[in-house]
């Protein structure tokens, strides 16, 4: 399933880029992210919890940076597995940054996700809605974080 959207943060492209490439910032903005560590500048490991109604899942995820063009584009792949519960997810992601009006930055993202195993039995229709709402929550958090930094908070 594919999701794509964009949002604007009130910070210049350079600063937005630094926030997006800082795993601690991303980890703090990502809903359900319990911990994140940088294994190398292009490989991160994270633990992410997702909940949909009564169904809860915890993924051990790896985010690998495949390509980047600072400060405008980064291509990543996320692979997650659910411990002994035999669910796997993979998401191919492209993030692009472009100057917006008033000195802000438009952040656009595209993600192509697959979920297999027990969670794959659950309908994709609602899962896509959930992914979209998590993405927009992430966008809101990131925006607040960057704006906070911009105002010296």
């Amino acid at each position: 399933m594919k999701i794509a959207d964009s949002f604007v943060v009130a910070a210049p492209v350079e600063r937005t880029w630094r926030a997006i490439r800082d795993p601690q910032v991303v980890g703090a903005c990502l809903p359900g992210c319990e911990e994140i560590e940088a294994v190398s500048p292009t490989l991160y490991r994270a633990r992410i919890g997702v909940k949909l109604g009564p169904i809860a899942a915890k993924f051990a995820a790896e985010v690998e940076v495949l390509e980047e063009e600072p400060p405008v584009r980064v291509v990543t792949v996320t692979r997650g597995e659910e411990g002994g519960r035999a669910s796997n997810l993979r998401s191919d992601n492209i993030l692009t940054l472009a100057p917006a009006d008033d000195g802000g930055t438009r952040v656009s993202y595209e993600a192509d996700m697959t979920v297999t195993g027990r969670l794959g039995k659950f309908g994709f229709g609602v899962m896509k809605k959930k992914a979209q709402s998590l993405a927009s929550e992430f966008a809101g958090n990131l925006e607040a974080r960057v704006n906070e930094a911009a105002s010296g908070g």
Binding site: P54, I55, R85, R118, K121, F122
Partner: peptide, 11 residues
């Protein structure tokens, strides 16, 4: 619903 989800290992 609940037992169906237990059978499917969803909960």
């Amino acid at each position: 619903t609940l037992v169906a989800m237990m059978n499917a290992d969803l909960v």
